[in-house]
Simulated scan of single mutants.
Amino acid sequence: MALADDLVTINGIPAHPLLVHAVVVLLPLAALGAIALAVRPSWRRKYSWPVLGLTIVGVGAVPLAQKAGEQLEAKLAGLDNPLIARHADLGNDLLPFALGFLVAVVLLVVAGRLADREGTAAAETPDIPKTWRRIAIVMSVLVVLAGVASTVQVVRIGDSGATAVWNGVGTS
C-alpha cells in the first residue's frame, strides 16, 4: 500500500474500489451462511465458527472501505458530483446494519449452543423448560432479518457507487 497525497493506493489504484469488494463479497456470503444456520439448526454445531469468522471479517472490512472511500471522496471533491455524495451518504449507513448483523449472529451462535445443551439435558429430564430453544428461534428470525437488511444495504450502496462512476459513460 502506498500513501500518495493522503490517498491510500494499492499498485497505484485507489484502495476504496479494491476494499469495497471485500464487503460486497464477504458480507452477503456471511448473511447466506448465517441464514442457513438459522434455518437449519443442525448445521450450527458444524458451521457456526466458520460463519462467525466470515461475518467478523466482512463486518471488519466495512470501516476500512468507508475510510478509503472518504479519502477518495476528498480527492474527488472538485468534481461536485451529487451521485458521489449520495453514494457516500449510503456508505456511511452500512456500519450500523453490519454491526447489528454481527451481534445477531453472535447471539444466535451462543443461544444455539445453549439450546443444544438444554436439549441434551431435556432428554434426561423432560421437565426442563426450553428457554434457550425459544431464544435461539427468536435469534434465528433476527439473523434472517439483519442478514437480508445488510445485504440490501450493500446492494443499494454498490448500485449508487456504480452509478456515480459509470453515469454518462458511453452516452456522448
Results as ranks from 00 to 15, higher is better:
residue 5 D to I: 02
residue 6 D to N: 15
residue 6 D to P: 08
residue 10 I to T: 03
residue 11 N to R: 14
residue 12 G to E: 08
residue 13 I to C: 03
residue 15 A to G: 05
residue 16 H to R: 01
residue 17 P to G: 13
residue 20 V to Q: 06
residue 27 L to W: 02
residue 28 P to V: 12
residue 33 G to R: 10
residue 33 G to I: 08
residue 36 A to C: 15
residue 36 A to Q: 13
residue 38 A to T: 05
residue 41 P to M: 14
residue 43 W to K: 09
residue 44 R to S: 13
residue 44 R to Q: 15
residue 48 S to T: 03
residue 48 S to K: 08
residue 50 P to T: 14
residue 50 P to W: 12
residue 51 V to Q: 09
residue 54 L to V: 06
residue 55 T to W: 10
residue 55 T to K: 02
residue 55 T to Q: 09
residue 55 T to D: 02
residue 56 I to V: 15
residue 57 V to D: 06
residue 59 V to F: 03
residue 61 A to I: 04
residue 62 V to D: 02
residue 66 Q to H: 00
residue 76 L to A: 09
residue 80 D to P: 02
residue 83 L to N: 11
residue 86 R to S: 10
residue 93 D to V: 01
residue 100 G to F: 08
residue 100 G to P: 12
residue 101 F to I: 04
residue 102 L to K: 04
residue 104 A to P: 04
residue 106 V to R: 09
residue 109 V to E: 06
residue 110 V to A: 07
residue 111 A to M: 05
residue 120 T to Q: 14
residue 121 A to M: 14
residue 122 A to D: 00
residue 123 A to H: 04
residue 123 A to N: 01
residue 138 V to C: 11
residue 138 V to N: 10
residue 142 L to S: 15
residue 146 A to H: 02
residue 147 G to N: 08
residue 149 A to P: 03
residue 150 S to L: 03
residue 151 T to S: 15
residue 154 V to L: 05
residue 155 V to N: 10
residue 156 R to W: 10
residue 159 D to P: 02
residue 159 D to G: 07
residue 161 G to N: 01
residue 163 T to S: 09
residue 166 W to H: 15
residue 168 G to R: 00
residue 168 G to A: 06
residue 171 T to F: 09
residue 172 S to E: 11
